[in-house]
Amino acid sequence: MSLVGWGQIGLLFVVVLALIKPLGLYMARVFSGERTWLSVVLGPVEHALYAAGGVRADREQTWLGYAFALLAFSAAGFLLLYAILRLQHVLPLNPQGFGAVPADLAFNTAVSFVTNTNWQAYGGETTMSHLSQMAGLTVQNFVSAASGIAIALAVTRAFARSAAETVGNFWVDMTRATLYVLLPLAVIVALAFVAMGLPQTLDASVAATTLEGANQTIALGPVASQEAIKQLGTNGGGFFNVNAAHPFENPTALSNYLNIVCMLSISSALVYAFGQMVGDRRQGWALLAVTGVLLLIGIGAIYWAETYGNPILASLGVDPAMGNMEGKEVRFGQAMTAAYAAVTTGLSDGGVNGMHGSFTALGGMAPLVLIQLGEILPGGVGSGLYGMLVFAVLAVFVAGLMVGRTPEFLGKKIEGREMKFAMLAVLILPLAILGFTAVSAMLPGAVASIGTGGPHGLSEILYAYSSAAGNNGSAFGGLSANTPWYNTTLGIAMLFGRFGYALPVLAMAGSIAAKTRSTATAGTFPTHTPLFVGLLIGIILIMGGLQFFPALALGPIVEHFQMLSGQTF
């Protein structure tokens, strides 16, 4: 590790911190239904959309109505995207002349983008027409992110309101999140990306002659626009197969910086907006402190492991000072590869600028653990906030049990009913991840897809289902996942991970909204102090981490010890 490397990481945190308050305040205004400086332009568009969709903006929904709207919208998105992918060969904007996407891959991809996972079992530049990329995948990049924000808003209102029957209007929340937050920022960032050298064209490719005289086809397309929302919406689905390691998707150290800042900006600002909307900004800062601590630990773990390197290579004469550069782009180096890897898995982005499967065993384990913690650092836009709030509810419950008081969070009593919903949400991840991993590790057909034997092979399967169920979408590499088995089961894991988590959370929101909000007294456990921050970190590590420890022990941990004893995979 170097001072320069840590300086780069530190600067990243400074830039994001500077963005949190202005963006968070703006988002709080948008989601409270107040006028903003964009209302003059976007207000008529918003009302036209409501009129076209028959939405009564002033009519709010119960948590169940909100959940049904979310599911109906997602089902419609799945069907539309599936149809586009299956019919792309007869649809326009297909200059490459690609055929229909195979049925199992279309299912996997449609579910993947509707659930904000953006797992890519395909190579974008060799599979998807421009129409599929733009009208299919990029549209879902916007609306799936907006759906996540909408769920988080419902939970936020549950804490902010007292004795309320409703938690908001899903259609209004989704429309405002898309129109006022995601769309304007995506336009600005896309233009910045174009200025940094990302292609934005409807041409299919250019032909080039290499130095050896061979002909090469260099794929092009509307890359910058997709890259912008890919990061702002924490989607992660890249235009190219190798994602942000591709020089057209992430050409410079500066574009890499902007990538990471975009990932962190909205998701962090949303936590601040939560504090603003519940009337106590300190609550938002406390949750951001938890995020910052755990994210720094994650970045530090990867950075340390990759600069420590592989002693087997050193024994072969490779300069140990270089650490492990396998799977990394030289233009980013170890520090900014570590920062990208931790951020993209700490939240639910899933884009990659390096190959996580080529990291050292412990360096590869860190992104895996960050996904398994629930991607709450600060999480996918929306999904991270409501995931963190579930852990906060668990933390105050544990604290209440320890001191013998009725647990309370933001003036709302946390009782058995809320705990049942919280636990149903928390348990869905281990169920989907460990269940599907165990089955795949036993099926000869599924095992045949792994690229490496030994514990690394288990890590490949474990990572794939963690990424899918956690709605992350990053790939470990090595696993040939474009098979009917993996396309189908990973798709189901994505649906369970997204909605199996969100539905109990919405139920919890409905239950909490109905409670009367009491004012804090001397006996109230404060939830904005360093003590609570420490408690919450402990709960996250215990509840989120320990469930997966046995599987990790059989994968990356044993691989690390085998590396130290001279065996590598």
Binding site: L64, A67, F68, L71, S74, A75, F78, L79, Y82, R86, L87, A103, D104, A106, F107, A110, V111, R417, K420, F421, L424, T488, G491, I492, L495, F499, G500, L503, P504, L506, A507, G510
Partner: peptide, 30 residues
């Protein structure tokens, strides 16, 4: 254009989401 595989995968996706809607209804009774 629609073939058996399409019917299966559309049913799988839409059916899973419909199952989740039933799950939500069940949660409302807790």
């Amino acid at each position: 254009v629609f073939i058996l595989a399409d019917i299966i995968f559309i049913a799988l996706g839409a059916g899973t989401i419909a199952g989740l809607a039933l799950y939500a209804s069940g949660l409302a009774r807790i």
